[in-house]
């Protein structure tokens, strides 16, 4: 464990707290993509299936449970919460996720760390899917042009978590002999690159004060 990975996990938890605060606390799903939320639920339910047999670290075990629980809670409220459904904009949240899920599934089967293990295929699928899971959310924000304050912090924290993981991988590459994780490195790079445009607008809007809304062209 290093500081980058720890901060990354904390940023990830923060993104969940912000989203839960908005959806469950604020009873509003305005500007939030259900498609992204559902893809994240798939990402965690597939990647953390090793909860059933891998007890290597209590820290990981607890956070895996937290991430699965939080992502399923968010999907549940967005699908069945009366006020959340009323504020969710289904026709704007229209990114064709089948064009993301299918290629990731094919890639997961073809490119993974152990072709004899079904779990490795599922695990690789989950890594690839997480890299693109934010697209429907960014697509929705682009369409709406203006990003509500809480939503902008949620997206920022979610983007920051994987950016911090990139630093974590660099640190581990430099300090641990023959450590290599090309699959997560490349996927994490793609995932973080997708946020660059948002990060730029987030920074532009927040440097004038934290509670300014983010404007996307």
């Amino acid at each position: 464990m290093n500081i980058f990975r720890f901060l990354g996990d904390m940023s990830h938890i923060l993104s969940f707290l912000l989203l839960l605060h908005k959806i469950v606390g604020g009873k509003s799903a305005a500007g939030i993509s259900l498609r992204t939320a559902e893809m994240y639920a798939i990402v965690f339910c597939t990647r953390y299936i090793d909860l059933l047999w891998n007890f290597a670290s209590l820290y990981n075990y607890l956070l895996k449970l937290l991430f699965i629980g939080a992502s399923l809670t968010i999907v549940y409220f967005m699908r069945y919460g009366p006020s959340q459904k009323a504020t969710y904009n289904a026709d704007e949240d229209a990114f064709p996720v089948q064009y993301l899920i299918a290629p990731c599934a094919v890639l997961g089967v073809l490119i993974n760390q152990d072709h004899s293990s079904p779990f490795e295929m599922v695990w690789a699928f989950s890594i690839y899917l997480e890299a693109v899971a934010i697209l429907p959310q960014l697509f929705l924000l682009q369409k709406q042009g203006e990003v509500e304050n809480l939503t902008s912090h949620y997206v920022f924290a979610l983007g920051a978590y994987r950016a911090l993981y990139l630093l974590n991988w660099m640190f581990r590459f430099m300090t641990e002999p023959d450590y290599q994780q090309r699959i997560v490195w490349l996927s994490g790079l793609v995932q973080t690159a997708l946020y660059c445009d948002f990060f730029y607008h987030y920074y532009q809007s927040k440097k004038g004060g934290l509670n300014k809304s983010v404007k996307l062209p």
């Binding site: 990975r5 996990d9 990830h12 090793d50 891998n54 290597a56 670290s57 990981n60 956070l63 895996k64 991430f67 760390q113 152990d114 695990w123 993981y165 974590n168 023959d178 450590y179 290599q180 994780q181 997560v184």
Partner: peptide
């Protein structure tokens, strides 16, 4: 080999 790819991260 396992050490290379141990899934020790979230």
């Amino acid at each position: 080999e396992v050490a290379l790819h141990a899934h020790d991260e979230l």
